[in-house]
Amino acid sequence: METRELLKWSAQVKLREKSKQEGRLEHGHRMCAGCGAPTVVKMVLMATEYPVVLSNATGCLEVSTCIQEFTAWKTPWIHTAFENAAATLAGVETMYRALLKKGKMPENVKFIAFGGDGGTYDIGLQSLSGAMERGHDMLYVCYDNGAYMNTGIQRSSATPLGADTTTSPAGSANPAGKLQQRKDLTRIMADHGIYAAQASPSHWLDLMNKVKKAHSIKGAKFLNIIAPCNRGWRTATDNSIELSRLAVETCYWPLYEIEDGKLKVTVTPEEKKPVDLFFKPQGRFKHLYSPENEGVLEKIQAQIDKTWERLLKESEGPC
């Protein structure tokens, strides 16, 4: 990233001013060193210029931020179970409306649910879909690290094709790791007729703009944010931002939003890089470079190219 570009972004979000404000996520949490998730949360909250109530699905973020009498949260936060961050927050938001009506609450309180990909794409999909369909005034943020990391790196429906996880291991009978494509959750959520977008912490101006836009819309919103996990991705602890950037630049994780059914690509990489650059630094894809897996990477690249072309075409509007 060019420094000049960074400074431009920084001016746009008034980063210096923001650094003077008190954060809502405190240090002393127990996420792994270099985890992408806290940075994602921090950015989402930084872009939330309102009082905010949070809910959290069971997962890394939840167990590491609220343990015994130690909570890292400085804004109301609730965790109940794994599959229901959306339903739980829907209940909170409904009570808010009931109390607002009676003059017992201030206006303009925002509601955000955080869930990992396991709690969102898989076990929490029903609860999420229900909350979005009902139109609760809330933003659901999935921090997608592509596996059940909290329980020790098991495959989820967000795990990319070819990834080696503890339940989709690459072995002698199946050298390829995970055999299925990822579920395209962002599109599924957009099909609820809501604002849905993908973001990355590397492109934080875009991320914060999407959060701001989401808060400006009344009703349900969904944001899918890539959050590298250096343990699960088997990469160095300093790599989370770099990998999220490569995910965008290779179009593995395209940045776009869907509003009123219209899709808009929000960041087009200056030069679309080969997916290899994103995969190479990650141990979970190492086996794809061995002879038994000849052709797998090409297949993945072809899939990415196809999706990206489709996105660009849709982004220009119907032809």
Partner: peptide
């Protein structure tokens, strides 16, 4: 709120 500050990492 924010009591995690008591836990030094």
């Amino acid at each position: 709120a924010g009591s995690s500050a008591k836990f030094k990492t």
